[in-house]
Amino acid sequence: MAIYGYARVSTIDQDLAIQEAALKTAGCTVIRAEKKSGSTKQDRKELNTLLEFMRDGDSLVVTRVDRLARSVGDLQDIVRLLKQKGVTLKATEQPIDTSSAAGKAFLDMLGVFAEFETNLRRERQMEGIAAAKSRGVYKGRKPHVDVAEICRLRSEGIGPTDIAKRLSIGRASVYRALREVASS
């Protein structure tokens, strides 16, 4: 019966030290940490390693549930997997302990709020982008397709597939550029 810790921050310039210290204090014998977004568990190698490795009777400890998952779906998937393996989940800063009914209920509520917070952040970001676009500040990504070069190669009788290969772009980009020139 081992106690494992998992620490996560979203960006590489954030520090894991506070979470790691709290997990050591909680008695974690092994702590896995990573600097990755918590939106999905898909690309989080350290978390996935823990989830594969843990066995019946083990405990997974996090400082807060939002370190584990930022969406209700991911949180429920992780909790379901832990339950199937006989692993309990605990949080050092929240009254979460999946070995009790109250802890499970609190976990579900926090998961809902974590997803709500993520959705609010996304909405604010989209509002900011829309406002920047209306002011003419946000132009989007600069085009990397040289339309004039595509037209020149095409006028030499070179086909779209060969043009795409020569310019290291997708064939769809060639067709799109040719279509834009034809319609203007």
Rank of each mutant, 00 (worst) to 15 (best):
R64E: 14
F116K: 12
K165G: 09
I18Y: 13
R70Q: 07
L47A: 11
T40Y: 03
E34G: 04
Y6I: 00
R32G: 03
T92G: 05
I18R: 15
V174K: 03
L16M: 09
K139T: 09
G103V: 11
M126F: 12
T161M: 13
V137G: 02
R122E: 14
M126Q: 15
F106W: 01
V61K: 10
Y6A: 05
S168N: 12
C151E: 15
D58C: 03
A33L: 00
Q84M: 05
L68N: 00
V181T: 09
S10V: 06
S134R: 15
A17Y: 12
Q76I: 14
L47W: 12
H144I: 12
Q42F: 15
G73E: 13
L89N: 09
A91F: 08
L68D: 05
A148G: 11
D77C: 07
A132Y: 06
K142T: 07
K36Q: 15
E127H: 10
E123P: 06
A130Y: 01
R124V: 00
E156L: 14
L51N: 04
V137T: 07
E46G: 08
R55C: 01
Q14G: 08
I129W: 02
E180I: 06
Q19P: 02
A91E: 08
G5Q: 02
T40F: 04
T40E: 04
R70Y: 06
R179A: 13
Y175T: 04
